[in-house]
Every structure is written in C-alpha cells, then in structure tokens.
Write a protein that binds this DNA or RNA. Sequence first.
DNA 1: GACTGATCTATGATCGATCATAGATCGCCT
DNA 2: AGGCGATCTATGATCGATCATAGATCAGTC
Lengths: 205, 205
Amino acid sequence: MKATPALVRTGLGDQIRQVLIDGITSGRWAPGERIVERRIAAELGVSQAPVREALRHLEALRLIETLPNRGARVRDFTDEDLAEVFPVRAGLEETAADLAVHRMAGQVDALEAHIARLAAATDPGEVMRHSIAFHREIVEASGNRLLRSVWQSLGIEVWTTLSLRRRGTELCGKAAEHTDITEAFRRCDPAVGRMVHAHVMSYAP
Amino acid sequence: MKATPALVRTGLGDQIRQVLIDGITSGRWAPGERIVERRIAAELGVSQAPVREALRHLEALRLIETLPNRGARVRDFTDEDLAEVFPVRAGLEETAADLAVHRMAGQVDALEAHIARLAAATDPGEVMRHSIAFHREIVEASGNRLLRSVWQSLGIEVWTTLSLRRRGTELCGKAAEHTDITEAFRRCDPAVGRMVHAHVMSYAP
DNA sequence: GACTGATCTATGATCGATCATAGATCGCCT
DNA sequence: AGGCGATCTATGATCGATCATAGATCAGTC
C-alpha cells in the first residue's frame, strides 16, 4: 500500500469506522446510498479487509444494513427508527438506576460534576456529550458490565447526532431533571429508577 | 483451499461461528483458552478471514475477549457474568411487554402455542429452546426492532446453555408463570410488564 | 417486438502471502 | 549469577489477488 496512508497507525479498522461514522452523521453519504468496500478502501489507501471490519461495526450500530453478496447501504432512518431508541434506553437506564442506587450510597459527586460541566458547556456538540455523559455515569455506576456494554452498543451519541440533524431535538431545559435525579440518588430514593425512565422518555418525539 | 472443505456453502463466517459456539458451549475449548485464528482456519480447511469474522461475532456475544495484537481467548465466565444477564433481560422484557400489551390487543394465540410446545417438549435442550421462544415472542410482539436486535444480541440461548452446564438452573416449574403472563396479556393488564420483570428475575441465581 | 438464455460487469466473499508486534529465547557483558 | 539487548517465534493485522454471485446486457429464436 503506497498511496500516502493518510491514516496513522492505531488499528486501521477503528479509524476507518470513525471515518465512516463521521461521513454518515455529516451527511456525506446519504441514506440509502451504497457503501462499496473497494471504493472506501481505495479512497483511504487501505485494503478491503479493514473496511469490512469497520462495516461490521456499523452494522452492529444499525447505521447500515447489509444483504448477503449485495453489500452495505446507509440505512434510511425513519422517524420511527429514531423514536425506537427511547423505550430501550429508558428500560436499560431504569435498570441501571435501580442497581446503582445501592452502590452509590448517596455519593453523587460524579453526577454533580457532569451537571456542572453541562452547565458550563457552550457549543451544541459539547452540550450533547455532557448530557449523555450524565446518563453514562448512571449506567457505569450500576456495576453491571453487560448492561454497560449493551448501553454503549446503542451508539447513543451517533443516534442523537442524527436526531439533531433531523429536527431540533433540543437537549437543553433538561438540566433541572438531572438535578432532581441526582438528589434522588443522594437520598437513595428507590423511585429513582422510575424517575430516570420518565426522564429518558421525555426526550422522545 | 483444497483440504476437503468439510463445510457446505452458505456463508462461511456463519458456519464457523456456529462451530465455535458449539465448541465453547460443549466445553471443547476451556475458559481462558486461546483461540488461534490460523489453527481454526487450518482445521476447518478455510482461510483466516472468515474465522476473524466469526470471532468478531463471538466478541459481540461476549463469549471471547480480544486484546489488540494478542488474539482472542475464551472468556472465563464467572458466576457474576452469568448473573448479570438477568437484570438486563428483565428490564428489556419488561419494556417489551409494556409495548406489546397494546399491540396484541388480547390476541395471545402465539404465546399459547409456545406454552403448548413447551409442555410437549421432552429433552432438556428442547425445553430450553421453547422456554426461550416464549420470551422471544414477547420481544417480537413489542414491534420495536431495536429492542429485538438488542435482545437477540444478548445471546440468551448460549448463556443459558452455559448456565445449565455450570449448575442445574432448572427451567421447568416456570410453565405456570408463562400461563399467568399469557392471561395478563389476554386481558391487556398493564401490570404485565412488572410480571415479566419478576418472572425473568426469578431465574437469577 | 417479446421472451429466454448466455455472457458480461460490478462487487462481495474468500484466499494465500506478507507485514508488524508481543513475548520468549539466547548470548554477551559485568 | 544477574541484567540487558539482539534475535527468534508465534500470531494478529493487513494486503493484493482470486473466486463466486447478483444483476445488467446482449443475442437468438419465434
């Protein structure tokens, strides 16, 4: 492979995946558009193999759909697709909160730190990441590694980005609920699971 | 590749994945044992590529763990690993039941069919599959494709098999609860979600 | 012109070989 | 003997090429 690697050496598959994700979220590849393995490979100056690896990850994230012997295409996200994520997130995060409330034992420093960072955030991307980080913190605090793995595999950041592109799913105005939830964790309120569930569902369109 | 393909032609990756899953659940590969890509490839008379593809699937199922440049090894499932799946399943299936109860509108034929098949099952493997099929039916009935995808990715069958190997997690004696749940669906009882949650958790060790 | 089948083309699936890295091994120096 | 590199080995990561399949295209018959 000569054509100016254009990519540093740290796991080609990972880097290609990021390139593809950026391309999809930025709209470079339109929904329904085919993603041809060799074309991407040639463009990035790599071979077909790591591109295939990256595509499998995108498939797991449900960003593309693949037909046997027919290749991959960018999914044509319907509003329904974007909406489906919320009940799943709500269920997972409710479970996480119920598990976490015991383990935290009123220690909510980490949650408060995320709230502070969210309040200080300026640009929309930063707001989104800090808002998500608050939720991730709850999932982490559950101590259930499988739960964490499943939650991560939802690719919340990517889907939220797509949702923001689609319409103006505003993330602000929810900081108050984050505070309420944090207070519930502080007093080990067993209703915190339901609160988190309701909070997540309130994002749904 | 000459060495008597030993595998029919229907997507090598899929077939290899099944061989590996069987090998792990049957105990052919012990926990912690390394899985060397080229060894498997040579053994099955294929090349490294489809084996790598299969290994990625196993990684998604959390049956193996992979270190960069260091290969894959069979995970050493702790009791904790086996237990972690139940809260996650319970949360997902509660969500599914809550979504499904509206869509079923009291039509519980499919659920009853699974109960009948479970009652008629004889060998343990069959019992397990029909028991799982009942739960899968609820998830399918939710109509949420993401939820279905996430549930499937838990690899319930495999983990249940492993759990059965580990100790005698008996699946019988739960048929009555399946009937209770079905009745709740028939009368569109909004408490069905909680029932499913409790039912799933009752399998936990 | 319309239908049927052979051929061509694009591309995914798979292959065999090479490159790169992590440990293991060996040899040298003190 | 012990420490420290150089070298060797096993193996994952990547490559370029080939095989196989799904459609598209074309030719022949009626």
